[in-house]
């Protein structure tokens, strides 16, 4: 199977810790297989490349039906985390800490380091102009490796022939 001419583009629109990883993991796998990778960050996904935010991404245990009490170390089988419990002060920090622990156990790098690996491996990162303007950000707010802030139209042009994955 040849991947030499294959292109994949990811659109990252989420800024939570759990939703930062899909594009990083798949993008890294794609680079490893010789596939061209472009990542476009928009809306909350800009947190992934915002140098003041990237090390502080969180996972919020409220209204997340997939998070179970067992993940917090409470042996409650398949029982979810009640929203009232998730809303208690400190619960977001606890959930985030636990998820970081799981990543570390599996030797999955933190988001900042993972992004740098992708950039060094040849991935091209871009910020979305509309949301960058909306949030009052500039290129200086972003980590090194973000090539440019581009319009939606630019993104469509530069991803001709690519498989596009929206996250």
């Amino acid at each position: 199977m040849t991947n030499e001419n294959r292109k994949i583009a990811f659109i990252c629109s989420k800024g939570s810790l759990d939703m930062a990883y899909p594009a990083l993991v798949m993008g890294w796998a794609a680079l490893g297989n010789g596939v061209d990778v472009t990542i476009f960050f928009t809306f909350w996904g800009l947190d992934m490349i915002n140098k003041n935010r990237v090390d502080h991404l969180e996972i919020v245990p409220v209204a997340n039906s997939s998070m179970k009490l067992s993940m917090m170390g409470i042996p409650a089988g398949n029982m979810g985390i009640p929203n009232w419990m998730g809303a208690l002060p400190g619960m977001t920090a606890v959930a985030t800490h636990l998820m970081h622990g799981k990543f570390k156990e599996l030797q999955v790098p933190p988001v900042r380091e993972y992004l740098q690996m992708l950039v060094d491996g040849g991935a091209k990162l871009y910020g979305c102009k509309m949301t960058v303007d909306m949030m009052g950000l500039t290129q200086d707010d972003f980590v090194e490796g973000v090539i440019d802030i581009v319009t939606a139209s630019d993104f469509i042009d530069m991803t001709e022939g690519a498989q596009i994955i929206f996250i």
Binding site: N3, E4, W28, A29, L31, G32, N33, G34, V35, Q107, P109, Q116, M117, D120, G121, G122
Partner: peptide
């Protein structure tokens, strides 16, 4: 790839330069 970088003591850039276009395989 991450295990290779950590274990063989080389950077991402070096690894992709040595084995361009798909180092994993």
């Amino acid at each position: 790839l991450k295990a290779i970088m950590d274990g063989a003591g080389i950077t991402t850039k070096e690894l992709f330069a040595l084995f361009p276009k798909g180092p994993a395989k």
